[in-house]
Design a protein around this nucleic acid. Structure first.
Lengths: 148, 148
DNA sequence: TAAATACCTACTAAAATGATAGGTTGATAA
DNA sequence: TTATCAACCTATCATTTTAGTAGGTATTTA
């Protein structure tokens, strides 16, 4: 399954922010873009979406930047998906889309709904804090995540 | 999660072929396109891919058409995915793609690999025959699937 | 007041998607 | 033998999505 760079970059930014704001400082897009090798201008479009979803908080002006909007234990992968990509969990809340024919509708009910349910369950059960632990473990194992 | 029309139409065609070739006759693209309200010319691009994957067999010429290439119990959803869409199960066999940075790589390992594994398990466990049963049940419940 | 920062809007190049169109080959039935 | 129907092949195309680039505005702090 393919995932957009928006989601990928958004997740990377979240991890970066979580780790580098632990001292109480805000983390700027410039820092994130430099560390994670992401286009700053592209990030500037992504992070406001995470802010609107309440996942991060912004501080404007000199020495401003981002912090987490809530504890990392409460930031769910599903929230990130919903904030950055309409399609991933599309079937989640939307009333079932009209299928042209009945066989098509049957396929939707029998397959896609189950697949989406599986994905949703996974995404709702995965927190940023869990994810941070896994990343730190990787880092200890010799990865250079630019996070420690 | 979004799915391409190629996969959707391919599945519809497989169900249609399975049901309408039970009497031993081949099923033509014209029939499928008419019954399922799919562009015939578009179907003509999709079905050869299913044939190359061995899921259906083609018979050229007058009174020709398609039949299943193997028993419906052996046709897996995963096979259909692989035949019609490069990206759905992309991570399945391919050697893990190079991630730019280590954090990106970590996200790939910790998240996408698990998500793809879940999807793959589901797709490998779902057979066309199971699917046919579900479709017939729907049909009995009042759906008009043009399949009975 | 200068610098750094988030934020906003518009634009764009490239790729993917969802077809449409026309022609070729092969099998069958009359 | 020939007309017809069928799979098959290749090219083209319009639209949408993706992945950015670019430039400017508003806000905060030192």
């Amino acid at each position: 399954m393919r995932v957009s760079t928006r989601v990928e970059y958004g997740l990377m930014a979240l991890v970066d922010i979580a780790i580098h704001s632990e001292n109480g400082e805000s983390v700027s897009t410039t820092e994130i873009a430099d560390r994670q090798k992401i286009s700053q201008k592209y990030l500037e479009q992504i992070l406001p979406q995470l802010r609107q979803a309440g996942l991060i908080k912004a501080q404007k002006g000199l020495r401003g930047g981002y912090r987490l909007g809530k504890p990392a234990e409460e930031v769910l992968l599903a929230d990130v998906f919903n904030a950055l990509d309409d399609s991933i969990l599309a079937e989640m809340e939307s009333p079932k889309e009209e299928a042209d024919g009945a066989l098509r509708g049957c396929i939707n009910e029998c397959l896609w709904e189950k697949i989406n349910k599986n994905l949703l369950d996974f995404a709702k059960g995965k927190t940023l804090s869990e994810f941070l632990v896994e990343c730190r473990n990787k880092s200890i194992q010799g990865w250079d995540l630019y996070v420690i």
